[in-house]
């Protein structure tokens, strides 16, 4: 186990170096020259040249890369071409919004997904099962940005239950402590701000979580069915334990092991989905910001975001893999080729 952990952790390093090279070369080598875009079409060649010089874009690419990496290791990801402020500041000003959204999405997805999955497995071939399967199928097929649009149409436009975008009403914004508005509202003891923030959060979180919810439903159902077919479940039933107890005490726990891993992996992919959801709901997080920065060639910011997301993604995968190894010691890693 320890050997596996060390090996798995060491594998992260080359991956991260590779990611930084990929992103760097995409942004600095293959992308069109940002100078005319940043300075405007009417900038003359001299000012563009001066700008390139000031931003280090005239140095050899390898020099640029090493300058970037040595900066990154010290926590300096460069400065935005537009705002001139540090990329790290730009990112961390928006990051809590995205994390708040993603956490809410994965919480919704897990609770509803596991619930539906268990119900579908226990009542196999019932109407619950059919509904669960249909839900899981539509959930992976519907584009999340369209789902968001439908939610806004129905829940905001028609029912007026939830606001159609934003994180909180401006006047209610709590004093910033953590950047997570719901937590900040609690710290400030402001119940109105808390419920307002929650109201803003529900629709985008549900839209973002739908895909994961579908995957979790499927996974829970099949995992639960597999467990319910095991001999020890038959034994438990034969002993006369009530069905509820069999499911809750004997079947649920082992069934949730693979589900846990899936939830972990889904959390990573939510960060990608946030790009779209945030655009739909005008959520002032990192996703919408990324798209904006890409459109205006603010490469240092894009690089920083992609690197950060990759670090999170890789860390989550690592934790999920290790958790899986810990929870299910039967896994033989030497023979495990694909998952």
């Amino acid at each position: 186990m320890l050997k596996y952990v060390i090996k798995r952790v060491l594998m992260v390093l080359p991956v991260m170096i590779g990611v930084s090279i990929i992103v760097f070369s995409l942004m600095r080598v293959f992308s069109p020259d940002p100078a005319p875009i940043v300075l405007g079409q009417h900038a003359n060649e001299e000012s563009m040249q001066a700008w390139r010089e000031a931003n280090g874009l005239n140095d050899p690419v390898v020099t640029q890369y090493f300058a970037y990496i040595s900066g990154a290791l010290k926590g300096d990801l460069g400065t935005s071409y537009y705002t001139k402020s540090a990329v790290t500041d730009e990112i961390f000003a928006r990051f809590p919004a995205t994390i708040e959204l993603a956490v809410a999405a994965i919480v919704f997805a897990s609770i509803i997904g596991i619930g539906l999955g268990v119900m579908a497995a226990v009542k196999k071939n019932s109407i619950f099962d059919a509904a669960g399967s249909l839900f899981a199928l539509v959930g992976v097929s519907i584009p999340i940005f369209w789902l968001g649009i439908l939610f806004i149409m129905f829940f905001s436009g028609f029912l007026h239950w939830f606001p159609s975008g934003g994180r909180i009403d401006v006047l209610l914004k709590p004093a910033e402590v953590t950047g997570f508005y719901m937590i900040d509202a609690l710290i400030a003891g402001d119940g109105e701000a808390f419920s307002n923030a929650l109201n803003h959060l529900i629709l985008p979180a549900l839209a973002l979580g739908m895909y994961s919810m579908a995957i979790i439903t499927r996974m829970t159902r099949s995992s639960m069915l597999e467990t319910l077919g095991q001999d020890y479940i038959r034994t438990a039933r034969a002993k006369g334990i009530t069905e509820t107890k069999v499911i809750a005490k004997h079947a649920l726990r082992p069934s949730l092991i693979p589900v846990t891993t899936v939830i972990g992996l889904q959390f990573g992919s939510l960060l990608g989905g946030a790009l779209l959801t945030e655009s739909v709901f005008s959520w002032p997080g990192i996703g919408k910001f990324t798209v904006d920065c890409i459109l205006k060639s603010d490469f240092p910011v894009v690089q920083g975001i992609v690197l950060l997301v990759a670090v999170i993604f890789v860390t989550i995968n690592l934790v999920a893999d290790l958790a899986y190894a810990y929870l299910d010691p039967r896994i033989k890693y030497s023979s495990k080729k694909e998952r």
Binding site: V19, L26, S269, L271, I294, V306, V309, F313, V314
Partner: peptide
């Protein structure tokens, strides 16, 4: 290691 949609728009 990069979510596919993020990688795709970076490529774009």
């Amino acid at each position: 290691a990069i979510p596919s949609i993020l990688l795709a728009i970076t490529l774009m």
